[in-house]
Amino acid sequence: MTELTPAGARAVDHYLVGTLIAHDDALDAAVADQRAAGLPDIEVAPTGGKLLHLLARAIVARRVLEIGTLGGYSTIWLARGVPGDGRVVTIEAESANAAVARASLDRAGVGEKVEIREGRGEDVLPSLEGEAPFDLVFIDADKESNTLYLDWAARLGRPGTLVVLDNVVRGGRVADPLDETAQVAGVRAGLEMLRDDPRFDATALQTLDAKGWDGIALALVV
Score class of each variant (00 low, 15 high):
Arg188Ser: 07
Gly186Phe: 00
Gly186Arg: 06
Val184Pro: 08
Ala182Leu: 07
Arg188Gly: 07
Ala204Asp: 05
Trp213Cys: 00
Gln183Gly: 12
Ala189Lys: 10
Arg188Tyr: 08
Arg199Gly: 03
Gln183Glu: 15
Ala185Ser: 14
Thr203Phe: 11
Leu208Cys: 12
Asp197Cys: 12
Ala182Lys: 12
Ala202His: 06
Met193Phe: 03
Arg195Lys: 13
Met193Glu: 12
Val184Leu: 03
Ala189Met: 02
Gly212Ala: 01
Arg195Pro: 04
Thr203Leu: 13
Ala189Gly: 07
Arg188His: 07
Ala202Pro: 09
Asp201Lys: 05
Trp213Gly: 00
Pro198Trp: 07
Ala185Met: 07
Phe200Cys: 00
Arg195Cys: 10
Leu191Ile: 12
Asp196Arg: 15
Asp201Thr: 13
Ala185Arg: 14
Trp213Glu: 05
Pro198Leu: 03
Ala204Asn: 08
Asp209Ala: 11
Met193Ile: 06
Gly190Ser: 10
Pro198Tyr: 07
Leu191Lys: 14
Glu192Ile: 07
Gly212Cys: 00
Ala189Glu: 07
Leu205Asp: 00
Leu194Ile: 05
Asp196Ile: 02
Leu194Glu: 02
Asp201Asn: 04
Gln206Pro: 05
Gly186Tyr: 01
Gly212Asn: 02
Gly212His: 02
Leu194Phe: 03
Leu208Tyr: 14
Glu192Leu: 11
Val187His: 07
Trp213His: 10
Leu191Met: 13
Ala182Arg: 14
Ala202Glu: 04
Asp196Val: 04
Asp209Met: 03
Lys211Gly: 13
Thr203Trp: 06
Gln206Arg: 11
Val184His: 07
Asp201Ala: 09
Ala210Arg: 13
Asp201Ser: 09
Leu205Phe: 15
Arg199Cys: 01
Asp197Gly: 13
Leu205His: 13
Arg199Pro: 04
Asp209Ile: 04
Gly186Gln: 04
Ala182His: 08
Ala182Asn: 06
Ala210Asn: 09
Leu191Gln: 13
Phe200Leu: 00
Glu192Met: 09
Gly190Asp: 09
Leu191Arg: 14
Ala185Leu: 08
Gln183Ser: 15
Ala189Thr: 05
Leu194His: 06
Asp201Glu: 13
Asp197Ile: 15
Leu194Pro: 06
Leu194Cys: 04
Leu208Gln: 14
Pro198Thr: 10
Gln183Tyr: 10
Met193Gly: 06
Ala189Ser: 09
Pro198Cys: 06
Asp209Ser: 11
Leu194Asn: 03
Phe200Ile: 00
Asp196Phe: 04
Asp196Lys: 13
Val184Trp: 06
Gly190Val: 08
Thr207Cys: 01
Arg199Tyr: 02
Val187Arg: 08
Met193Ala: 12
Glu192Gly: 01
Thr203Val: 12
Met193Gln: 15
Ala204Phe: 14
Asp209Lys: 05
Ala185Lys: 10
Gln183Val: 09
Ala182Gly: 01
Asp201Gly: 04
Gln206Thr: 11
Asp197Leu: 12
Gly186Val: 03
Leu194Gln: 05
Asp209Trp: 09
Gln183Lys: 15
Asp197His: 14
Asp201Cys: 02
Gln183Met: 12
Leu208Arg: 15
Pro198Arg: 12
Leu205Tyr: 13
Trp213Ala: 05
Gly190Met: 09
Phe200Lys: 02
Met193Pro: 08
Leu208Gly: 05
Glu192Thr: 11
Val184Gly: 07
Ala204Pro: 01
Glu192His: 11
Asp196Gln: 13
Trp213Asp: 06
Asp209Thr: 12
Leu205Ile: 15
Gln206Trp: 04
Arg188Gln: 05
Gly186Ile: 01
